[in-house]
């Protein structure tokens, strides 16, 4: 009798713990989802009452006016990063996955490149921005400029692209490479027509994520890209570039409704841009997954 009581007590306690665990897990999920929704809805709700489409076609006047220059500048920066970091990152990923395998180049196997990328991926972005300012803008007399901003921003996002490329290339079946080799294709031709092509969804996804990060950065740009109310020019040096995050950061605690409207509008445009890129990246991933599954 006493034994069964103890067993019943233990069972009840275990059941209570189990229920508490389930409730706790769901509560945690709710505590993460709710702020995410609150954040996105909050950005829209703050910008919506004063939203006018003309912000996209009006130049900024500092704490008032539109954001045409900032949108254009952010797009220019993202294009530049796509070229600079895109080429560097994809080729670095090719190096890590295809050329630096331990099989080919001894025990090291590109450890130095991988180490540099890992360290860069966790490097505080403001420190990169600081170095860009003191080294490129001041010491080299570039001033606030597109090139300084691009170099720093690219250095920051290269790890994302290299990592995504490497893991996409590693998922290409070895049989593809062996088949290509058996057909007498050279290594470069195999890379171009077989390996990189079948890894393309993963590479593009990594590129999109890197671009969404680059478009949302503030700290590396504040002291390299500078600030301007004008549209971006084609000159790489001595001309500051406007960008969206600057207006969020500068105008949110300036006095006056106009400044707050600029800040909130910039935040909304940023969120829409970033979400669009993340959704596209997600679609590419799920599409390519579906194809590989049906091919199997």
């Amino acid at each position: 009798m006493a034994v069964t009581d103890r067993v019943h007590g233990a069972t009840r306690r275990r059941r209570v713990v189990d229920v508490a665990f389930r409730v706790g897990a769901l509560t945690a999920l709710a505590l993460v989802i709710a702020p995410a929704l609150w954040l996105v809805v909050g950005v829209v709700a703050r910008a919506a009452p004063h939203w006018r489409w003309s912000v996209l076609t009006t130049l900024s006047a500092g704490t008032s006016g539109g954001l045409e220059n900032a949108v254009a500048g952010t797009l220019v920066l993202m294009t530049g990063v796509a070229l600079l970091a895109g080429v560097t990152g994809v080729l670095t990923g090719v190096y890590l996955a295809e050329l630096a395998s331990p099989r080919r180049s001894g025990r090291l196997g590109g450890a130095w490149a991988r180490g540099a990328i890992d360290v860069l991926a966790g490097f505080p972005s403001i420190v990169l921005g600081y170095v860009g300012y003191v080294a490129l803008c001041v010491a080299l007399h570039w001033g606030f400029s597109l090139l300084a901003a691009l170099l720093i921003l690219s250095l920051m996002v290269v790890p994302y692209i290299a990592k995504a490329t490497e893991s996409a290339l590693r998922q290409v079946p070895t049989s593809y490479r062996e088949g290509a080799e058996a057909l007498g294709m050279s290594q470069g031709y195999t890379l171009r027509r077989v390996v990189v092509r079948s890894a393309l969804p993963g590479i593009v996804t990594g590129l999109l994520i890197a671009l969404s990060v680059a478009g949302g950065e503030t700290a590396p740009l504040l002291y390299t890209a500078g600030a301007t109310n004008n549209l971006p020019t084609w000159s790489l040096l001595h001309q500051p570039v406007a960008y969206l995050t600057y207006y969020v950061w500068t105008d949110y605690n300036q006095p006056g409704l106009a400044a707050h409207v600029v800040s909130n509008d910039a935040a909304l445009i940023l969120v829409v841009m970033v979400l669009a890129m993340l959704v596209v990246a997600r679609l590419i991933v799920s599409r390519s997954q579906r194809h590989t599954e049906s091919a199997r």
């Binding site: 993460v32 989802i33 478009g215 949302g216 935040a267 970033v274 979400l275 997600r282």
Partner: peptide
């Protein structure tokens, strides 16, 4: 995906919020 979005949003927007 919503959780991932939280990671992708610009930190200046999160700071504003």
């Amino acid at each position: 995906f919503l959780v991932e979005i939280l990671a992708g949003l610009p930190s200046v927007v999160i700071g504003l919020w």
